[in-house]
Design a protein around this nucleic acid. Structure first.
Lengths: 205, 205
DNA sequence: AGAAAATCCTTTACTAGTAAAACACCTGTT
DNA sequence: AACAGGTGTTTTACTAGTAAAGGATTTTCT
């Protein structure tokens, strides 16, 4: 995805913050000064633009990949809100959530794998979360290279307190998908994700 | 996005074997002890773990949102490869792509809107892309606050050279979805995205 | 045993992003 | 005409991530 699908169009790039934009429109530049359109999404517009410039290329994949990225960007921004109220960033919550979900101690390596982050990033997050009293560490008795991390009571309570708000919010966000649509979408995404995860080599090329 | 590799996908650990992500939402969860499973995706496992711990919560939304986030992370990481060969990061390519797509000059503000980035980020990227000779700027004759950015010939050639490889790669990545599935997925994502974009307020809550 | 290689985690140096302030300029009101 | 306020872009100070190197320990090989 990349820009191809782009952020611009839709890729998923960061979703902006409150930039003041307000295009006066009067200046000839307004790219599309249209207000958010009620129907249609921004990716469709980007795809249309690309097709106009390169009619020979198959832009089909953009409609899937661009939308996934754009949805992800919007959803993550949206979901940051409940977390921020709890004083957590998403990567921090992911780390705490991994501990809560698995219900046991995890080593930093395991946490890196679970949260799909680098080991260095986990080290940094653990430092902060430890200082805030949300997790505790202990050394392994046999292998002194290894550490074991567990949630403190405060950490567990924080996760358990945030999770329902998070899920409620997600439910609201998806409320536009009616009837069987949500399930269909989940199934199709599961299929795609299974493919992506099942064939790592494919992604490398 | 973000990041050289992508925001979330970090790490070189890329797809090793049991990698998985998805955390709550898609961030990471690799449930590690199990060998790579041929069937099923990691989000399903994470959801299962959460349900075991909190049987009372409705984890339905996770199956959609978690998968979107996880797919996005994997896809972005994967798609960085063709771009990196061209010496571009994704945000850089997104910026160039916006100029190519629209076929005209854009101001920094417009580029920020098109690429969903902050103005400051656009300023930084423009600086680098200008130094590399991929874009040019000129001041507005009437309003001297405004700049206009356009692709150089080299910039346009670079975009046009990279785009086909990008699309070909995306097609390969999605090849697991057979028949009408890709179109169905695109349609459902479009519907969701239309909802998300059409009601910004919803996301803010 | 002892050296070499592997493993776990952290540290270092650096990058790219953000938020907020700063600048420069324009516009509308009086 | 002049000033108050708005807009377009850049700058500043800072954050969190990465890659690669480092330190410590364990495992493997001979």
């Amino acid at each position: 995805m990349t820009a191809t699908e782009g952020p611009s169009a839709g890729e998923g790039a960061a979703v902006t913050r409150g930039d003041s934009r307000t295009d006066t429109e009067g200046r000839g530049t307004a790219v599309r000064a249209e207000p958010a359109r009620r129907r249609g999404d921004t990716v469709a517009e980007v795809v249309r633009q690309w097709r106009a410039v390169h009619p020979d290329l198959d832009t089909g994949p953009m409609e899937v990949i661009g939308r996934i990225n754009r949805c992800s960007a919007l959803l993550q921004q949206a979901e940051d809100a409940p977390l921020r109220r709890a004083g957590l960033t998403r990567p921090e919550f992911d780390l705490l959530g991994a501990l809560r979900r698995t219900g046991r101690e995890l080593t930093p390596s395991e946490l890196a794998r679970e949260t799909f982050s680098s080991g260095a990033a986990v080290t940094k997050r653990l430092k902060q979360l430890t200082e805030r009293g949300l997790v505790e560490r202990r050394g392994d008795t046999r292998d002194r290279r290894v550490a074991h991390v567990r949630l403190t009571d405060a950490g567990r309570d924080l996760v358990d307190g945030v999770l329902p708000a998070q899920l409620a919010y997600e439910t609201a966000v998806l409320s536009g998908l009616q009837g069987p649509e949500r399930g269909e979408l989940a199934a199709l995404l599961g299929e795609l994700l299974g493919q992506l995860e099942g064939r790592p080599g494919t992604l490398r090329a």
